[in-house]
């Protein structure tokens, strides 16, 4: 497990594209630049798409790790507003 402290978390298991990205953006909108958001994503299209889109919008992926149940945990550092 990482030692990075998270400021908010969103469980997007069983949430398809693109609503998982919508929820991620909603959470990011509540954070200030530099704060960290944890998002849990399903395998397949969600983990392939959401991190890419997040980076395109100026945020940074700090960590991407596989969970025991096959889902993914990503840590996003909130970038520009």
């Amino acid at each position: 497990m990482s030692t990075i402290t998270t400021d908010a978390s969103r469980d997007c298991r069983n949430v398809g594209c693109p609503m998982n990205m919508v929820y991620t953006k909603v959470e990011l909108a509540k954070l200030s630049p530099g704060q960290v958001l944890e998002v849990i994503l399903d395998d397949g299209p969600p983990i392939n798409n959401v991190p890419k889109s997040v980076v395109l919008e100026g945020h940074a992926i700090l960590e991407k790790s596989r969970c025991d149940d096959g889902t993914w945990r990503i840590l996003i550092r909130c970038g520009k507003k």
Partner: peptide, 27 residues
Amino acid sequence: MVKKMIDFTEEQLERYSRHILLADVGV
């Protein structure tokens, strides 16, 4: 900055999802 203003319902998030997804519109 927008913290206190985000009170969209689940239905509204779905309704406006294609706007929210746009980098130039967003939440």
